[in-house]
Amino acid sequence: MDLPRIFVIRERNHRVHNPFTEQKLALLGDVIRLRPGQTMLDLACGSGEMLCTWSRDHGISGTGVDISTYFLGAARARAAELGVADRVAFVHDDAAGFVAPTPVDVAACIGATWIGDGVPGTLALLEQSLVPGGLLLVGEPYWRIDSPDQAVVEGCGFTSRDEFDDLPGLVESFGRLGWDVVEMVLADGDSWDRYAAAQWFSLRTWLDANPDDELAGEVRAELDTAPALYVRYRRRYLGWGVFVLKRR
């Protein structure tokens, strides 16, 4: 059980595997008013930057779960670097269906709602690990325009407009599911650029070092098309944010 190699090649130099800068991640930790001693579960945690930096900055403890052995190795190294390895742990497991053995104060899935087959299922999964009155954090894309045409949808890398909602529709959907939106931090053009453009550098440096690898053709094809597709479509039409929810 692991991520396909192409994902690791593309994002191996990322600390945050979403269109969030480290500054926005820190802002999110501030606005949810974390306190020393609180506990957290981070499903599909990637390289563990959120859990590690929040443990350092706010004194929380917690567990991150991911299927990528590479990213979990980076997460454990980051925890040691920041001096929080005694407060955070990382588990190699499928986040889909993972429930914390002891309920936590904050349960998060940032940019990976496929683990619950969408937002409703992911919120239901996260709630199983949450103490009464705790906070859910969910990171999710949304359309910046109401009804993108099929060229926009495919240019952003998807097959159907219905894979995501627009921002008002997404926020309203949380209410229909019984959750209050109590905070949010949204990506902007710069944070999108840091996420997407850094991938191209990682792809190119990998390709330069591995021209005969079996994935070299796939990487070359992505480098040929990804920058133009990004600036034409994804940067203009796709938003992304983290929404902080509390059960009504």
Rank of each mutant, 00 (worst) to 15 (best):
M1S: 05
D2G: 06
F7N: 08
I9T: 08
R15M: 11
Q23R: 14
L25K: 03
A26G: 07
L28N: 06
L28Q: 12
D30A: 12
D30T: 10
V31Q: 12
I32A: 05
P36M: 05
D42Y: 01
G46H: 12
E49R: 11
C52S: 11
W54F: 05
W54Q: 00
R56V: 08
R56W: 10
S61H: 03
G62Q: 04
D66S: 13
I67V: 14
T69F: 13
L72C: 11
R76V: 02
R76A: 00
A79W: 12
A80P: 00
A80H: 09
E81Q: 15
D86C: 04
A89F: 00
H92K: 02
D93I: 01
D93M: 00
F98T: 06
V99G: 00
A100D: 04
A100R: 03
P101M: 03
V104K: 01
A107Q: 03
T113Q: 08
I115D: 10
G118H: 06
P120A: 14
L123F: 02
L125T: 14
Q128F: 06
S129F: 01
S129E: 05
V131E: 13
V131Q: 12
L136Q: 08
V138N: 00
P141W: 02
R144W: 05
R144H: 11
D146A: 15
P148T: 08
P148Y: 02
Q150V: 10
A151F: 04
V152A: 13
V153S: 09
E154I: 08
G157K: 11
T159L: 14
S160V: 01
R161W: 09
D162I: 02
D162K: 12
G169W: 02
V171H: 00
V171G: 07
S173I: 01
R176H: 12
G178A: 05
D180G: 02
V181L: 14
V181T: 15
E183M: 11
M184V: 11
V185D: 06
L186C: 05
L186N: 02
D188S: 03
G189N: 07
S191A: 12
A197P: 01
A198P: 01
Q199D: 10
F201C: 13
T205S: 10
D212E: 15
D212Q: 13
A216I: 13
G217T: 04
E218V: 14
L223P: 05
L223N: 03
D224G: 13
A228Y: 01
V231F: 14
R232K: 13
R232N: 14
Y233H: 15
Y233G: 08
R234Q: 09
R234C: 07
R235A: 13
R236E: 15
Y237L: 14
G241A: 05
F243S: 01
V244C: 13
